[in-house]
Nucleic acid binder design. Structure first.
Lengths: 352, 352
DNA sequence: CGACGGGATGTGAGCGTTAACACTATGCCC
DNA sequence: GGGCATAGTGTTAACGCTCACATCCCGTCG
């Protein structure tokens, strides 16, 4: 009835810019002289469209610069084709690499990736982020939240939503993908022991981080296997600074000849602390890291470390997520990828 | 009135949610005994809802674990509340930091961030990524594509869509935000010259990268200002390896006493090359980097560098994007943030 | 030669939300 | 006491798409 009283210039000058309406499927249909349904068929390229019609529709789309409306599509199909990614400080090499790996895998699978980085790994922050992502109707969530306080939050996520934890340790009761840190740390430690070191000191990651705990476990197991005494653990926080400070304490003790650091940053800091007091690496002390950052080969000296395949982690977590999305169930699957030892110059045979 | 009907254990049957359909606004309305429109009003908290009704609705939402359907909302409001982020290799410190900064700023502004990392900085890759993001109906796009071949692609993006380039250099004809590389490089170079070095050598970033070019320009300008001779530029590719290789060539030349590297990774490589041939830093040679990576203070020796405020870059690019979204225009605005020199131990007075 | 089948296309009904407007009380002013 | 704001609520119509089904046209077979 009052449908086109629009001729009256209703004053609304201060409103946000109204871009000219995008072309809709209807517009394309009209231009191509077909029904909107035929356009839809072309778009989702189902069969049952004659080549001639298809060409005409395609042409109309091009002319109008038609962009299908994802909201409308999502509304009716109930599929957003979007994945959520919760992650902690993407500035760190580990998380950044995983984000990259996951994102690539997701886009290859035709999914969009919506990211939510959190500032702290608290239960609350994680749940907030997941809540936001759910609001956005993501079909599944990958959470890179490698700390206990955050991992417990994952258990609180309603089972209806597909979820994968990355690097969250074996204790989680959600599906997870991660590197086998126990094996990796054991690899590093055995390497040092096999070089003749009486024992291996350890600068660990901070308490409450599954990966830190697992690496410490691997270190300890390797010591036990070699019947080597287990010196007290020095606790770091992943930062170069903490590695530096911890190593300072070790540096003055001449009995220290081998140190396994739970990541490369701390190893880097350790390298400097040792250098400062004149202890040569690897002549006097061997140092091994974990992660294999790209700069590793160019440190002084090039760092022996444990390499993780982050791209594979990304692919696997995506696969696990897809499985959940299609089956609708949340299998209690845990995938551990085996890391590799990367021997460079920072580790050497113990002097007699 | 019905506020304390709580004693009645109304308890819904505890059937664990099988793939049952999500509650809709209609369901909430029914349960609360109001119309769906009232629910909508509560949701978008407009006034005109009695406190009592609002409470009832809120309660119903809670009971049903109601999640508004973002697709339906986006469809009718024509606003997706989503921003697109195109970025290159998020594994690098610079891009990673910017992504982090932008993402934080966006979420603070109530926007979701959809990310698309590209593997190569080709025109095609950039346009593909932008196309995908547009398909997803993002309201605006931030592109971290710091290479000429990618920057030109940005000019080809239809003006209807909000767009901001980050670190794309002054030559772009789209709005951009970035650090003032010329000033930063000049800062570093002047610092070295003021320490008495006759001239400063330069290991640059790869050709075709605006930031590399600008840093080289700043370096050259500073030399000119000091009437210092400009030695030939050694071209790197941002990697520690390239810095190492370039510095190897410099290391044997005793007239080289100061080197400005276009980023910290290359500086790290240079540090090692110098170390290998026994040239001490900073006693024999001073080295300055650019970026201020977190490990900088723990290199051997701690690296003097130029610090960029990535968080601010994120905030500014978001602001610029928001401006476009609300005004509907694409202003030709260029924002240059001034970086800071961070003096540490890798630079020292030239020996006489 | 009429019924049948299947390829090609069109029609109508939602999907879950917000916008616009209509309606009902209630209170207040003159 | 009639008019008239105004707060609170409901009704209806989009939004742009896909799904299920209806329709049309033709060739083919009994």
């Amino acid at each position: 009835m009052s449908d086109d009283v629009r001729h009256e210039p209703v004053e609304a000058p201060v409103s946000p810019a109204v871009p000219e309406r995008m072309a809709t499927m209807m517009d394309v249909a009209k231009l191509a002289g077909v029904s909107h349904q035929t356009v839809s068929r072309v778009l989702n390229d189902q069969a049952k469209v004659s080549p001639e019609t298809r060409a005409r529709v395609l042409d109309a789309m091009r002319q109008l610069d038609y962009q299908p409306n994802s909201a409308a599509r999502a509304l009716v199909t109930r599929r957003s084709k979007t994945l959520g990614l919760v992650t902690f400080d993407t500035t760190l090499f580990g998380p950044a690499s995983m984000v990259y790996g996951i994102e690539q895998a997701a886009r290859d699978a035709g999914y969009f990736v919506s990211i939510a980085s959190i500032r702290t790994l608290s239960r609350r922050a994680v749940l907030d982020a997941i809540g936001q992502l759910r609001l956005q109707s993501v079909e599944g969530i990958v959470a890179i939240v490698p700390k206990d306080s955050a991992v417990v939050a994952l258990s609180a996520v309603p089972p209806g939503i597909a979820l994968v934890g990355v690097g969250v340790g074996g204790g989680a009761d959600v599906p997870m993908v991660g590197v086998d840190n126990v094996v990796g740390a054991a690899l590093a430690t055995r390497h040092l022991l096999s070089l003749g070191h009486r024992t291996v000191y350890h600068i660990s990651g901070p308490p409450g981080w599954p990966e830190a705990r697992e690496r410490t476990t691997g270190w300890r197991e390797a010591l036990t296997a070699y019947a080597a005494p287990a010196p007290p653990v020095l606790v770091g926080d992943w930062s170069a600074r903490s590695g530096y400070l911890a190593a300072q304490r070790l540096a003055t003790d001449p009995s220290v000849t081998a140190v396994f650091c739970a990541n490369d940053q701390m190893a880097l800091g350790a390298l400097r602390a040792l250098h400062e007091v004149g202890r040569r690496v690897p002549a006097d002390v061997s140092v091994v890291g974990f992660d294999d950052v790209p700069e590793g080969p160019y440190l002084i000296p090039p760092l022996t470390t444990v390499q993780q395949d982050f791209a594979e982690v990304g692919r696997r977590s995506l696969a696990l997520l897809m499985e959940q999305i299609t089956t609708g169930a949340r299998p209690h699957r845990q995938i551990h990828l085996t890391p590799q030892l990367k021997v460079r110059d920072s580790s050497a045979r113990a002097v007699a």
